[in-house]
Write a protein that binds this DNA or RNA. Structure first.
Length: 278
DNA sequence: GGGCATGTTAGCAC
DNA sequence: TGTGCTAACATGCC
């Protein structure tokens, strides 16, 4: 499920709790961790990971790009951060311990209050890091897609020779955009996915910046998108204008939505609204 | 069974 | 150095 709006939705749920659902993670103490699929721990041996995190209290839950960041306090130790990337199929839930071990559970942190934080991940692509400084993991990323200023965005765009679609997917350019929101933003901005970044006129660059903000914020307002077996909960899929709509009519002009492959990813666009040549 | 999937990265070519 | 292609990671759904 995980692009910026979906990760933001999860971060909020973990931080604030879900009314009538999972409780907040903030203030909880991690008593121990069960490692069911060791490869999901990216930077430590499982035993070392378990030893270092035991006894830590969750101080904060935040997001940068598609990463979740848990700020931890460990009595008598320096600051510690747990970073989690859900990749393609990961999900996180605070559940009663009795519900902790599901078929796709890969990591389970046992908490006080008879609770557990469960990391389910059917495809096993997800990764977690336990570090002193989050920059060890996310330091090479570009600015967060919802924090970057228009001036920053436009100047970064000007410096790139490549096509727009791969650029939007490049997390070192801007962090948080994935395949769905890239296609939706390009359609809203009326820009062809293969336009060369540096070739955009001033108004085109501004349109792209505003379109990215708008689709991400609308995604968050809808609690993200969910449209297959991976993730229930969001509604933004009902607002898709191009993603997954190959052959169906463009909502703006009626032209059938086209699908091409760019950078090994499915790319959906309206050939009329998003012309390659002007 | 083949093709597809909301992500990232190493290796390689130009 | 920047850009982009392929394969790989691993599993499930249609």
């Amino acid at each position: 499920m995980p692009e910026l709006p979906e990760v933001e939705t999860i971060a909020r749920a973990l931080r604030e709790g879900i009314p009538g659902g999972g409780p907040s993670l903030v203030g909880r103490t991690i008593q121990s961790v069960q490692v069911l699929w060791p490869r999901e721990i990216a930077n430590l041996a499982p035993a070392e990971f378990a030893r270092r995190i035991a006894g830590a209290c969750v101080r904060s839950v935040s997001r940068y790009g598609k990463y979740l960041l848990l700020g931890l306090d460990l009595p008598g130790d320096g600051p510690l951060s747990l970073l989690i990337h859900l990749r393609m199929s990961g999900r996180l839930d605070v559940v009663p311990r009795s519900a902790a071990f599901t078929p796709h559970a890969r990591l389970v942190w046992l908490l006080d209050g008879d609770l557990a934080l469960r990391f389910d991940d059917a495809r096993k692509f997800g990764r977690v890091w336990l570090v002193g400084d989050p920059a060890e993991v996310i330091g090479s990323l570009g600015p967060d897609a919802l924090s970057v200023t228009r001036e920053q965005f436009v100047s970064r765009l000007r410096a790139r020779r490549g096509a727009l679609k791969p650029l939007l997917l490049d997390q070192t350019f801007v962090a948080g955009i994935g395949n769905i929101y890239a296609d939706e933003a390009l359609h809203l901005a009326r820009l062809h996915p293969q336009r060369i970044a540096a070739s955009l006129a001033e108004d085109e660059a501004a349109r792209l910046y505003e379109a990215i903000r708008r689709v991400l914020l609308e995604g968050i307002a809808a609690n993200g998108a969910s449209f297959d077996w991976v993730y229930p909960g969001g509604n933004f899929q009902e607002n898709f204008k191009v993603y997954g709509r190959t052959g169906r009519s463009c909502s703006a002009c009626g032209t059938p939505i086209a699908r091409i492959v760019i950078a090994q990813r499915s790319t959906h666009f309206c050939p009329t609204c998003q012309p390659l040549a002007i």
